[in-house]
Design a protein around this nucleic acid. Sequence first.
DNA 1: CCTTTTTGTTAGGCTGATCTAACAATTATG
DNA 2: CATAATTGTTAGATCAGCCTAACAAAAAGG
Lengths: 173, 173
Amino acid sequence: MRHSSSIEDYLEAIMLLADGEEKVTVTRISQAMGVKKPSVTSAVTRLVENGLAKHEKYGEIHLTGQGRKIARDVYKRHQALKRFLIDILAVKEEVASEDACRMEHYLSSMSLERLDKFIEYVMECPQGKPLWLQGFNYYLVHGKRNPEYMAVCSPRCGNAPGDTENSRNKELD
Amino acid sequence: MRHSSSIEDYLEAIMLLADGEEKVTVTRISQAMGVKKPSVTSAVTRLVENGLAKHEKYGEIHLTGQGRKIARDVYKRHQALKRFLIDILAVKEEVASEDACRMEHYLSSMSLERLDKFIEYVMECPQGKPLWLQGFNYYLVHGKRNPEYMAVCSPRCGNAPGDTENSRNKELD
DNA sequence: CCTTTTTGTTAGGCTGATCTAACAATTATG
DNA sequence: CATAATTGTTAGATCAGCCTAACAAAAAGG
């Protein structure tokens, strides 16, 4: 079952507050999310109805296992999107965070998986920051390719080891 | 001013129908979007109220200049996201399209610009499909890096021409 | 041209998500 | 501990966006 982006936002905010060793209260959620307190009360009621949180009147709010799982998933998507925007597209952090906040609700698990692997592939390159990514930065700044990077783009004219004509993506779907 | 994702969806659908030389009617929009006709009538009313479309009773629906502009922007975001997912992350088309449909409403203009440039940089590499991307495909399939691709990852250990310690992203923000 | 079919609109209901205003419970403090 | 301040809830409104049912207008076809 899929939950609304609003619900996901509340779950995420509650998880982050709880992880920060904070007592999770209506007021704190309200401040963290920039909504009024009655909105929080009613949202929390919705969470409870959906089995995603526990809340006794005037007491603290806690996520259930299910709620926590969803919150973690949302947060994973948030982080993946944000890292991609910042580390690869060189979008400035503030904008990246806002975009991630909005898009985090809509990335499928398949795309998330691929995005995670892509970031890992790029950023954990055992030989440092990939040259092609530096080349992309150059391209962003100067509006054209730097021939010195291009030399490395595809030395064998696109034929890579073991990559025959149509091997691309064949085993992926 | 920002419009809701629902409004953007209607604009996009109307534009695509119109581009397809079709008469844009309530019924066609309804079919194209998978919503009932009264929903379309009321959505179109909202479009008209916002100056995004024209519609005389029982007649055809046309976008205004403003409406068309927004529709085009949405569609650009859609295409950029979809191309990225398919061509770079190797997500299968069906999933990519769905993801793009949902995320297209939430990508900032800054991120779109960067994403477009990134795709251009990668896909229009003058020497063919970049080796590193082929390496990523290998990584997806086999779960590990192919040493033959790695040799090309960053030959000079991360020091690229003219790339001194902190030049990264400096001129970008 | 009259009737049937298709198309479009109106009316009215529901849900999620927000808000303000007013009130109730809890906590802090002199 | 009594009162003030803070915190939380309730009540009630609004809005977008969808739906179904019923009706009205337009188009098609004998």
